[in-house]
């Protein structure tokens, strides 16, 4: 797939800059001699927007097309596993969360190995429980919190 690779990145940077510029509208700017909290973010947003647009424009002008690989399935599996931790870990406990997350990650490669995945999931949940809960005293439980 041939796309305008730099141009996409440049537009993304300009978009982030625009979001931060909009967010900075509420903050007092102050003056250049006596800056308020809004001055620095506003200036940075403008720099980001200009730089992003310049990158995009330069690539379009140069007509330089670079190949780009974007793996949606890997992104979905990894992102889904992280989201699972965010949603489940506190209520469902480490064992269930880790096993489900490991299965989700195992769905990314071509070959699926159910037994190995289960073993990795259980072993990993015991390991994280030992390190983070027993070792560092994090307020997490191993098994689902049934009192909820």
């Amino acid at each position: 797939m041939k796309t305008l690779r730099d141009a996409g990145g440049g537009l993304l940077i300009a978009a982030i800059g625009l979001l931060f510029l909009l967010g900075a509208r509420e903050m007092p700017l102050g003056s250049l001699r006596n800056m308020g909290p809004g001055m620095f973010p506003t200036a940075l947003s403008v720099v980001a927007i200009i730089a992003g647009l310049a990158i995009a424009a330069l690539e379009v002008l140069r007509n330089a097309e670079a190949a780009m690989t974007f793996d949606l399935r890997a992104l979905a599996c990894v992102g889904g596993a992280i989201a699972l931790y965010a949603v489940l870990m506190e209520s469902a406990g480490l064992l269930a969360t880790t096993v489900i997350a490991v299965f989700l990650l195992a769905a990314a490669p071509q070959r699926f190995r159910p037994m190995e995945t289960l073993l990795v999931g259980v072993g990993l949940s015991v390991f994280t429980w030992a390190v983070f809960v027993k070792g560092l005293g994090m307020p997490l439980s191993f098994l689902p919190d049934v009192s909820l």
């Binding site: 990894v78 931790y85 997350a101 990795v120 990993l124 983070f132 560092l136």
Partner: peptide
């Protein structure tokens, strides 16, 4: 190694302020 990295990242970052907020931030 990939499940190990994800598990360590998510559990570790949870411990920064004991909240799931930082896991969303990692995502």
């Amino acid at each position: 190694f990939f499940p190990v990295i994800i598990a360590l990242v998510c559990t570790g970052v949870f411990g920064v302020s004991n909240s799931s907020f930082d896991i969303w931030l990692v995502l």
